[in-house]
Nucleic acid binder design. Structure first.
Ligand SMILES: [Mn+2]
Ligand SMILES: [Mn+2]
Ligand SMILES: [Zn+2]
Ligand SMILES: [Zn+2]
Lengths: 156, 156
DNA sequence: CTGTAAACTGAAAAACATTTTCATTTTTCA
DNA sequence: TGAAAAATGAAAATGTTTTTCAGTTTACAG
């Protein structure tokens, strides 16, 4: 997903095409792994020095609502954002957190690269939990951690 | 799990039995759902008014290391803590986040009560992710959201 | 093109959350 | 019971997110 495709999505949704947003989206597309708001501010300022942190927060909120990025919760530092994969966004496969389409990530414990994956087939687990606890499960949230191919090689 | 059992675990692990810790543990056991550090400070001060927030953070960190509480990441407000279930702690079922035994919670979207559940049988999903992405998956993290039995009744 | 209304921006301040520091108090244990 | 070690909490430092607001930029109708 290029940053101008992302801009198109924003304008299609009725948002303006501004310099600040282009800078942020460029930064987001260029970033290797998930990036925190502070990370994105720094990277965005390389493109548009006047960029403000408030705009980073506001734009990420919009992007998240549109399903273009996902907020990851990490052990360290908590929130980071990662672009969502086109294929998965299109799929509309909603076991979703609160009714929104959702995806899940594997995150490298070494280099922190994150990759979205398709097909979280956990209906059996959900059924078991509903039976065990009496809860009506409406959504779930799953993250995996490990080593990416590159870091596996370096390891050995 | 009573609070004095928790104190026993602490002393067994070499930590002192202090008034501040007893107050915090009482508060934790009494709390209905997951509680934030600020929540626990307030509840703990009902028992020991001098209790400080720093001690709340420090004690939660210890309890988490011992596997007695788990840190939940929620959409709103981020970190909260919930006692872990005895049965699950004993089980030593470690698909674990970083090698530690782990458990998962279902959280009520209405009243925020959290219940730990056993048996996250997602080996097939893990295998598929490893195959899809090339990552070597070492641990995972799963939360479910829905309605607890009580809130389901109220709903209808 | 232009002019205008609506949308957006970023500085600053406020509101929160977490961590560090350090002098004092409490606990443990010989 | 006394000394050493561990733990405490106030205060300050650090970090993150939200709110406000006056000024700027963008979109778009004319
Ligand atoms: Mn989180
Ligand atoms: Mn598991
Ligand atoms: Zn890696
Ligand atoms: Zn409920």
């Amino acid at each position: 997903m290029t940053s101008s495709e992302l801009v198109d999505q924003l304008t299609a949704a009725g948002y303006s095409n501004t310099r600040a947003r282009r800078a942020l989206l460029d930064a987001l597309v260029a970033s290797a792994g998930p990036a925190s708001p502070a990370d994105l501010l720094e990277a965005g300022r390389a493109r548009h020095p006047a960029l403000g942190l408030v705009t980073v927060y506001r734009t990420l909120e919009i992007l998240e609502q549109l399903g273009l990025v996902r907020k990851l919760h990490l052990e360290e530092g908590c929130h980071s954002y990662a672009l969502s994969t086109t294929a998965l966004r299109a799929e509309g496969d909603d076991h979703g957190h609160g009714g929104d389409a959702h995806g899940h990530h594997v995150i490298c414990q070494q280099c922190h690269r994150a990759v979205e994956f398709a097909g979280c087939d956990i209906d059996a687990v959900i059924a078991s939990v509903q039976q065990q606890t009496g809860f009506a499960v409406r959504s779930h949230w799953l993250e995996m951690f490990g080593l990416c191919p590159t870091c596996q090689e370096k390891q050995s």
